[in-house]
């Protein structure tokens, strides 16, 4: 009975939605407003004035950089949410030593062997974000995955060394903080928050600012992913 009701409700919701998407400008046509209005500007001028050859990077870090600033903060919010809901007094101490499931030698060896390559790949993805597809978010995810792999295969203590307690809270906030730092630099240089210098002589600085943001997002994203994993594992 409930299911039938839900299905009726969904059909009532779906019909106008389908009508609405049918009424949108035709999919894939080059005369779409999505293509001709704002995007046309990005495609035309992006590579010259925004500091990165990859137009997607131009658009997320320069033209609409403030959105990404917010997006990075959303990621930090999820970290704070997990910590706020899960952290307990002395959780680690209270937890009985979990019976160690022995990991096969082969797995340990392969993980140790591959770890440096994964790390280098992550750094490559982060640093190449302004030229080719990739960037801080993607590279950060790879780094975070590396941490999780190390934590599972080589043990929690081994992994903890990768993320020392001292700078940890700063690393977790690295994404928003580098963003704000670069934004304030832009404020000094151009008079607008997240402004990038437009003179051709300062093109190197533009690219450098974008790379710094990418690194910040990558490091911050990896630290958030790793700490969320660590907390959830301890729970």
């Amino acid at each position: 009975m409930k299911k039938a009701l839900v299905i009726v409700l969904l059909i009532v919701a779906a019909v106008p939605l389908v009508a609405a998407v049918a009424g949108l400008p035709p999919h894939g046509s080059p005369s779409n407003p999505t293509y001709t209005h704002v995007s046309a500007y990005y495609l035309e001028h992006g590579a010259e004035e925004a500091g990165a050859e990859n137009i997607v990077t131009d658009m997320i870090l320069n033209y609409r950089g403030f959105d990404t600033n917010g997006e990075v903060t959303v990621i930090f919010t999820s970290l704070a949410a997990v910590f706020g809901v899960l952290l307990l007094t002395g959780a680690v101490a209270r937890k009985p030593a979990a019976p160690e499931i022995p990991v096969s030698m082969v797995v340990r060896f392969i993980a140790r062997l591959l770890a440096p390559f994964i790390a280098i790949f992550a750094v490559y993805v982060i640093l190449n974000g302004h030229i080719s597809p990739g960037g801080g978010f993607q590279g950060g995810t790879v780094l975070g995955a590396l941490y999780i792999t190390v934590s599972i295969v080589l043990g929690r203590d081994e992994a903890r060394r990768l993320l020392p307690r001292g700078p940890k809270p700063w690393l977790q906030a690295a994404g928003p903080l580098t963003f704000v730092g670069v934004g304030l630099l832009g404020l000094v240089l151009t008079g607008y928050y997240l402004g990038f210098p437009t003179t051709p002589a300062l093109a190197w600085l533009r690219t450098a600012m974008i790379v710094v943001i990418e690194i910040g997002i990558g490091v911050g994203g990896a630290a958030v992913l790793a700490s969320v994993y660590e907390t959830m594992e301890a729970d």
């Binding site: 903060t73 949410a81 706020g84």
Partner: peptide, 21 residues
């Protein structure tokens, strides 16, 4: 509009966590 959505996400995520804290 999209910036509005981004801030709405920050707001909503933190609200859910504050309720459950």
């Amino acid at each position: 509009l999209f910036n509005l959505f981004v801030f709405m996400e920050i707001l909503s995520l933190s609200s859910y966590a504050l309720v459950a804290i």
